[in-house]
């Protein structure tokens, strides 16, 4: 048996129509208590209409050491953005 209460990450949907957003973390022995705790800790001021929780140790994160090769190659693909293309003003909004 592990003797340390696991850590969970908490995500709240502020209102329907918006995505769940990470708000913080908490400790709970299982997913039922974690959901209750997320409600009791993170929605005391009407912060949300839906809660997601997940074990922190289940998250797989990108490595900051690989940030250059992971993210920088997107930097010069300016042709992916609408402002790259010149449309005469007379054509109007496109």
């Amino acid at each position: 048996m592990t003797d340390v209460t696991p850590l969970w990450e908490v995500f709240i949907r502020p209102r329907n129509g918006l995505a769940h957003k990470h708000v913080g973390s908490l400790h709970a022995a299982d997913e039922v208590l974690a959901l209750d705790a997320a409600r009791d800790v993170y929605t005391r001021r009407e912060e949300g209409t839906s809660i997601w929780i997940m074990r922190s140790d289940a998250i797989v994160a990108s490595d900051p050491a690989h940030a250059d090769e992971t993210f920088d190659p997107a930097g010069d693909k300016i042709y992916r953005h609408p402002t790259f293309y010149k449309i005469p003003d007379e054509v109007g909004h496109m």
Binding site: M1, T2, D3, T5, A28, A29, D30, L33
Partner: peptide, 13 residues
Amino acid sequence: VREAALAHAEKRA
């Protein structure tokens, strides 16, 4: 209390 919750979590899992 914390130990009981962990023990139950293990049993439930």
